[in-house]
Every structure is written in structure tokens, then in C-alpha cells.
Design a protein around this nucleic acid. Structure first.
Length: 214
DNA sequence: GCAATGATTTACT
DNA sequence: GTAAATCATTGCC
């Protein structure tokens, strides 16, 4: 259904309509607001001149101020160091020994906050994404989870620290108007160890979207 | 040095 | 519904 775009431009002009989100979007202070505003935006990667990606439909916010976050208490480790960089880079880490999860780092340098991308609705490069996930037949299993979408987009931990402003991964403002009634929010998934912080309503979804996780 | 553990997915009963 | 897969990171000895 969707044909794949081939791109010959240099990587810093990849966004075809020049709709890339800029540094000012990512560097703002409120990671929860940014998580909500990322709904409806487009996440893309480009590998070997083939673009893959889709519409962000599910996100979660994480902050050093709460126990769900790898950087809780402001503790910097080898793994989470990228979260302490200024907003506009990606934090990619290996989860359960086999899944790569991608986060959008926000806020200023030395304030560790990020948005986990939990699901996208595939739009671009469908055949390539299916090739990267050979067991998947139904479209709605292709990118409906944080580990699934990184595999479909070809993202692994070597991408940790890449810039969303001038590398082979970026986010575009697709100019979708998302109104509050289209958004559901609730507690984040899979962080029971975080105690009461696990109850924070920091997970955002596009209501009734077919590509939500679970 | 070593043991415990995930911001998950998939297959199977 | 439950369980296995699988390994880098973390924290403690």
C-alpha cells in the first residue's frame, strides 16, 4: 500500500518537508507536556537510503525526580549518561536482554528527563519493517510496543546518544491537530518497582488507536 | 568477581 | 492465563 521513499540527500536534509522538530521543542522543562505533545508526531529512521517510521501513538514520561526513572535521584551511570545531555538526543538501552527501547531526551543539560516511545502507527517503509520482523503478519503487530518498534525501525543500542536534529533518526511535526478528547492518560507500564511513583498518570495514548501496546 | 534483575515479546497450556 | 528467552548493567562482596 505504501511505497517506500528513496532518499539521496545528505542526512541533515532528510526531513522531506522540512518539518523536523527543532531543539526548542525538546529543551523545554516539562517532560510530561512533551510526552503528550509527541502524540501525532512522526518518528522516522533512515538506513541504507530507506526511510521507515510512523505516527507516535503512545508515550511515557520519565524524570530523575521519581523512582520509575533510570536516573532517579540524579544518579548518573554509564548506561543513563545520555539522559543528562541537553534535549534532542535519543537514549537507547537494552531491556530484558533482548529488546532495545528508545527514549527522547528532554530539558536542559544535567536534568535527566526523557520520553519513552511505546508505540507508533506504521506509515513509511512498510515492506522494510516487515522484513525486519519476519514473524509478523498483521500490520497492527508490527510496531505496537516499545521493543517492537525499535526492531521495525532498525534502532539498537549503537544509536544511543544520536541527535534528532542531524542524524538518521528524527521526529517531524506532521501537522495533525490532536485535541484533548483524543488522548487517554494513565499509569506507566512495567514499573511496579517504582512504588507510588508507578501510579503517576504519565502514560499518554491516542484513544482507540489500533497500534497501542498490549 | 558474582548474582540479581529488568521501561518486553512471543509461544504455549 | 503462564513461562521462557537472554544479557548488559548494577550493586554488593
Amino acid at each position: 500500500m505504501n511505497s517506500e521513499r528513496q532518499y539521496k540527500q545528505s542526512i541533515d536534509t532528510l526531513s522531506p518537508l522540512n518539518l523536523k522538530l527543532t531543539e526548542s521543542f525538546y529543551r523545554r522543562k516539562n517532560v510530561v507536556t512533551i510526552a503528550r505533545e509527541l502524540l501525532g508526531k512522526g518518528l522516522f529512521t533512515c538506513i541504507d537510503n530507506v526511510i521507515t517510521g510512523g505516527i507516535v501513538v503512545e508515550t511515557e514520561a520519565y524524570s530523575w525526580k521519581e523512582r520509575g526513572c533510570h536516573a532517579f535521584g540524579g544518579k548518573k551511570t554509564n548506561r543513563n549518561a545520555v539522559m543528562f545531555e541537553g534535549g534532542g538526543v535519543v537514549y537507547v538501552y537494552l531491556c530484558y536482554g533482548m529488546h532495545h527501547l528508545v527514549n527522547i531526551v528532554t530539558n536542559r543539560e544535567n536534568v535527566a528527563e526523557a520520553v519513552l516511545i511505546r508505540a507508533i502507527e506504521p506509515v513509511e517503509g512498510l515492506s522494510t519493517m516487515f522484513r525486519r520482523r519476519p514473524l509478523i503478519k498483521k500490520e497492527y503487530h508490527l510496531t505496537s510496543g516499545p521493543g517492537k518498534l525499535t526492531r521495525a525501525l532498525g534502532i539498537d543500542r549503537n544509536w544511543n546518544g544520536k541527535s534528532l536534529l542531524n542524524s538518521e533518526i528524527w521526529i517531524e511535526d506532521l501537522k495533525f491537530k490532536i485535541s484533548r478528547p483524543q488522548i487517554t492518560c494513565g499509569p506507566r507500564i512495567g514499573i511496579d518497582y517504582a512504588g507510588d511513583d508507578a501510579k503517576l498518570p504519565w502514560r499518554f495514548c491516542l484513544k482507540d488507536n489500533l497500534w497501542l501496546s498490549q
